[in-house]
Design a protein around this nucleic acid. Structure first.
Lengths: 328, 328
DNA sequence: GCCATTAATGCTCAGTTCGAGCATAAGGAG
DNA sequence: CTCCTTATGCTCGAACTGAGCATTAATGGC
């Protein structure tokens, strides 16, 4: 049983979801694609001179956008055959597109980028994910359409299954909103034909009112990759000090909280957030104060890098959402 | 900026870490490789007729071992160029080996498998990971050698960094053992030349006493993949009901606990474990009893599949290890 | 049948964490 | 000076955790 025998050729694309905070909003770096008006994530093929996947991605991003990436982690590898379908032209049947997606975080947030790149708020692409101020209006419309989709299930069993998935991902009934399930939500929407990509992938034109038809859409499966990144990041800030990869060198605790909220798409209790951060000793005071807070000046804090090495799992054990999940 | 332009060809290997409990031990399915005596994980190239990566892996495993896989999740994608190096013969410089690793769990645990496959206890490959009964003896030897490695660092800064990594991964000093860091431990050992693969990858013969030299070793980077799988599984059973993918249809709470312990490589408090499982309502009594317990008969339980759909994040919130992690 | 052994199962208790909110401090705008 | 805004300190009850004691119900010897 040898390895690599009879393998079909494949090309490996590296794709990056690069996140930065700009004016308090989580933004991703996008590249305007030429053909249609849909944005793409920075990406490029793995090349022979790339020592590792990470190195390859770094060099592509630096080449395409001039950006030096900081924190980086692998997200997922996609290789579904239908990826290449859709209206981007006929796919090469012999070469399967394999794409390895990475999540990267940068502090810089220099809004003006070179070439055809731009920072876009990530909620432009996944508007149902932002619950910071209110239940997003689009959710109401979606829930109505998804209700129809559920009722049109071909069998009673499937109807039940759809109902469960709906309840779990979209917080209907007493189930609380779980901000980490962004990928599940996207995939449910895809399966229900509620995002434009679901139609494009079948070579059809999405009907009016479908998400990403007229408003922000993305090429191929890039919005799915974004949803993956969002879920991963939302989960990971709870147990690793990733937030600080997005913060400037010094910041106030409220800025830190706003960043956590912006990423999670939820609201947090201010005093408890401070308690958490302080207990974990993730930050230390610089001695300076920020006076332009609109109220009492706030201490400027800095990340205490030692924690990375000190404790097993540093991070703010945020428990966003999660009303009563107890037994009846 | 087009995708897939100028890509170098790559072959995509699918590799599976297939875990089953056999006689209370976590075992992985291995394939005896022909050339040298090192075991490999079941794997095979992605082929054009595979619709998805998962489907491809399923079909490879079924073909190689006759096993139908149940639960499955993607682990990581490896593509380091040095992968193909070592004493397996010269690597094809033009084709980069990309391997997508999956974790799969099976209930069956039918010890006799077909062909050249065998179930091997996973601690045979990573013996320093089993802390169920005691601090594994091999850890003492490793700590000594790793101490030398630390002291031989080329600079003071690197020495400090090595010391921190050591403390964090190998629980020296007051830092508690963190069973989830299996991959970090493997990589530290690799970097310190304490596993045979580190030497093989440079085309050198490992000196005596190196882990995996005479005892269990694995082909190419399969042991690294195993370490990845172990860490993932150890982490995930804490918040997802994965344990049940490894259990028979009915089981006692102690059996469930032993499985959790076997995977984590740690011990758990019995009464608290029961409390946890019951509070989460993960299982329900079948009404039957297991009498061959050696003591008072135990209720036979079954998994309550409804939970998968009921709550956001079911799973036993196990807190293994973790003595005092508090502030000084 | 009696006893030691082994597990299963029930229960307690103190320390910690969590969610929520009250109260006070310290700036700026008018 | 007063109001508004944010920072920061503190409290309280509910829930959760870690650790251990106590009781129950089998088994194997005798």
């Amino acid at each position: 049983m040898t390895l690599n025998s009879g393998a079909s050729p494949a090309t490996v694309d590296l794709t990056a979801v690069i996140v930065a905070m700009i004016d308090g909003e989580p933004c991703i770096l996008t590249v305007q694609s030429g053909a249609n008006d849909r944005d793409t994530l920075p990406c490029g093929p793995l090349q022979p001179d790339h020592r590792t996947l990470q190195a390859g991605l770094r060099s592509w991003v630096e080449y395409q956008t001039g950006l030096r990436l900081g924190y980086m982690e692998q997200l997922y590898t996609f290789a579904d055959r239908n990826r290449a379908g859709g209206d981007d032209g006929p796919a090469d049947q012999d070469v399967r597109p394999v794409s390895v997606a990475y999540l990267a975080l940068v502090h810089d947030a220099n809004p003006q980028t070179g070439r055809a790149t731009a920072w876009q708020p990530w909620y432009d692409y996944l508007p149902w994910e932002d619950w910071r101020t209110e239940r997003p209006p689009v959710v109401d419309r979606l829930l109505a359409d998804l209700g129809d989709w559920r009722d049109q299930a071909p069998s009673a069993a499937k109807r039940r299954r759809r109902a469960e998935r709906l309840r779990l991902t979209f917080a209907s009934g007493s189930t609380p909103w779980d901000e980490e399930r962004s990928l599940e939500r996207y995939e449910l929407l895809y399966g229900a034909g509620q995002v434009a990509e679901a139609w494009h992938d079948q070579g059809r034109e999405p009907p009016a009112g479908i998400l990403g038809r007229s408003d922000r859409s993305m090429a191929t499966d890039h919005r799915r990759i974004l949803a993956t990144a969002m879920g991963r990041l939302r989960g990971k800030i709870k147990y690793r000090p990733l937030l600080f990869e997005l913060m400037p060198p010094t910041f106030t605790l409220l800025q830190l909280q706003r960043t956590a909220e912006a990423l999670s798409g939820t609201r947090l209790h201010k005093q408890n957030f401070r308690r958490l951060v302080e207990r974990q000793q993730l930050v230390e005071a610089t001695g300076q104060h920020e006076t332009r807070t609109g109220g009492r000046p706030a201490q400027l804090m800095r990340f205490r890098p030692a924690v990375t090495l000190e404790r097993p799992a540093p991070g703010l054990g945020i428990k966003a959402g999660g009303r009563s999940t107890r037994r009846a």
